[in-house]
């Protein structure tokens, strides 16, 4: 019975949605001083999913794509050039790195940087799977078959538009 309750209680914490970090807490997390505070983001479904939204909004996709890398390094694997803890990733986003990674200091708020960093870690499976957001639809190289536009049947002069 205690064994059954323990995961339930753990689940409880994951779903706690604190929309705003208290300002002193936010300040204490500057530049990787507080490693343990990252737990709040790594195991929280809400923050991870916000991070996923922001990853797209701030166009991280432009270089890193959906974690596979391209212009920037891949984020899906477990090889980190500048360290793989959440504090390292926060520092990378906030301060930038040589050879192309720009600094987002002052462009993205600290809270959001932590959320994005947590999402980046979730790509390589380094967060609790019970909290991790779904894989993206954009992962699909092309639309699913039933989503593709219907090719006109041969011999039919006017192509019909089936999409709404």
């Amino acid at each position: 019975m205690p064994l059954a309750i323990a995961p339930l209680v753990a689940g409880c914490e994951r779903e706690d949605r604190q929309y705003r970090a208290d300002p002193p807490l936010l300040d204490a997390r500057g530049a990787g001083r507080q490693y343990t505070l990252g737990e709040r983001y790594l195991n929280n479904a809400y923050h991870l999913s916000q991070g996923k939204r922001l990853y797209a909004s701030f166009n991280c996709r432009g270089c890193h794509f959906d974690g596979g890398g391209g212009i920037g390094p891949a984020l899906m694997e477990n090889r980190w050039i500048y360290g793989g803890t959440i504090a390292d990733i926060v520092a990378t986003i906030r301060e930038g790195r040589p050879n192309g990674m720009p600094s987002f200091r002052g462009k993205i708020t600290d809270e959001q940087i932590w959320e994005i960093a947590a999402y980046v870690l979730s790509m390589s499976g380094n967060v609790s799977s019970a909290a991790a957001p779904n894989r993206d639809d954009h992962m699909q190289g092309r639309p699913a078959e039933n989503r593709q536009p219907t090719p006109p049947p041969p011999g039919d002069e006017a192509p019909k538009l089936l999409s709404p």
Binding site: R17, Y19, R20, A21, P23, L26, D27, T109, D110, E111
Partner: peptide
């Protein structure tokens, strides 16, 4: 609470 407007210091 929960809106997309972030807390900016």
């Amino acid at each position: 609470p929960g809106s997309q407007m972030p807390f900016v210091q």
